[in-house]
Design a protein around this nucleic acid. Structure first.
Lengths: 213, 213
DNA sequence: TAATGAGTGTGACAAAAGTCACCAACATTG
DNA sequence: CAATGTTGGTGACTTTTGTCACACTCATTA
């Protein structure tokens, strides 16, 4: 999956796009590289492009006053940043933070192109609509969790989602990171994790957690 | 504002739409009436139309397991239901509840029309995009509040928003209703309201609260 | 007018979550 | 190897929130 061309990424991740759309994207998109930890978007920043992730993983989060990184969702290869589409169109500023959590490559589509793409290419239009829908749904899940669930349930849901999204049972997360993602304190996470371990749901190791089914 | 025709509502609330778009909406939209308390949308329900509010007020909320109505935002005349646009397009089911909180009229646009409108009418396209953006932002505010703020701040924010949205300082809300909207208990709300009254931020009366700037 | 129900006030207590202090294990690096 | 920083464990305590029980005031209506 290393060092593919823009054309190869598009062919692989967006096979449903009609040929003319692929061509116009290939001609106008630029490929950009990020290292783990690099910021793609920051609150208040102006957006000049629509972002399509083609490699790696991007964490979308809401920043708290003391630097907490309240986790919303991940963007994976084939996903677009819904906010970059919305804000780009109206030249609004971003309301969230986006950070690469590993080596990541994205396609940047100039905002000037959005109107034309939406009007002329139905597969693009459907892709945008579907992107909105999925992200809206994710936000609703987030709201459900913080509004209705206690911390132990939220933690269980969080770990399950991490295991699913990152596609591994070995979750390389420190207790502090989890606490930041859920906006609570490390001690609370440590205690709840111990309970989960006693209940046989996870096994704890230094620097990572094994998620048991 | 009573008993206007579809054409009059469109002219008044959506003056930015181009004439041809207005015509096609007038020909295809149907007007529907709701009484206060009527449901417009329920979780799991299939969506067959895009909804534009032209009169009254619609409350969007997430339903809790015990019937709580966790408040998200209001739709006012001129607003569209973002979810009815998204879900309509893909024939997905609704994830939220929408309830008229007073006499309300809405325009129903058949979903079959959405593709054409998006492609052919730029003012419609911008309207849809702007609708998404605003609702996305509202959800982010909701998340900020429950994720980062304690109940007293959330209550203060809630009252401020109600006063603003409903455009009145006389908030006709019972403590129970507020508790349901914020997913907490009545006693907590009563106690916090008392504190706010002592701090001179509100005045409490039976069945309503006066919001002091 | 007695009865009823909705709305609200309040004290006592329980549970959940947050804070503080400190310790121990381990890894890295000078 | 000593020093340092990160990670995690834990007890004690506080604060916030939720729960329970009950009382009081109104408004409505049988």
């Amino acid at each position: 999956m290393k060092d593919m061309t823009i054309a190869e990424y598009i062919e692989r991740l967006f096979p449903q796009f009609e040929p003319a759309l692929k061509t116009i994207l290939i001609e106008n998109a630029t490929l950009r590289d990020f290292q783990g930890g690099d910021m793609l978007m920051q609150t208040g920043q102006n957006m000049r492009s629509t972002v399509l992730v083609v490699e790696g993983m991007v964490k979308l989060y809401r920043e708290g006053e003391d630097g907490q990184e309240f986790f919303m969702y991940y963007l994976q290869p084939g996903n677009a940043c819904a906010l970059s589409m919305i804000c780009a169109t109206k030249q609004e500023t971003s309301q969230v933070m986006a950070k690469a959590i590993e080596q990541t490559k994205v396609l940047m589509i100039p905002i000037a192109l959005m109107d034309k793409l939406m009007r002329d290419y139905r597969t693009w239009y459907y892709f945008v609509i579907e992107t909105y829908r999925m992200r809206f749904e994710e936000l609703l899940f987030v709201i459900d969790n913080i509004a209705f669930k206690a911390m132990d349930e939220r933690l269980a849901f969080y770990l399950k989602k991490q295991a699913g999204d990152l596609n591994t049972k070995e979750l390389h997360l420190t207790h502090s990171e989890i606490a930041s993602d859920l906006n609570t304190s490390r001690e609370v996470i440590s205690r709840l994790l111990k309970k989960m371990e006693q209940a046989g749901e996870i096994k704890m190791y230094r620097n990572y957690i094994e998620y048991l089914a």
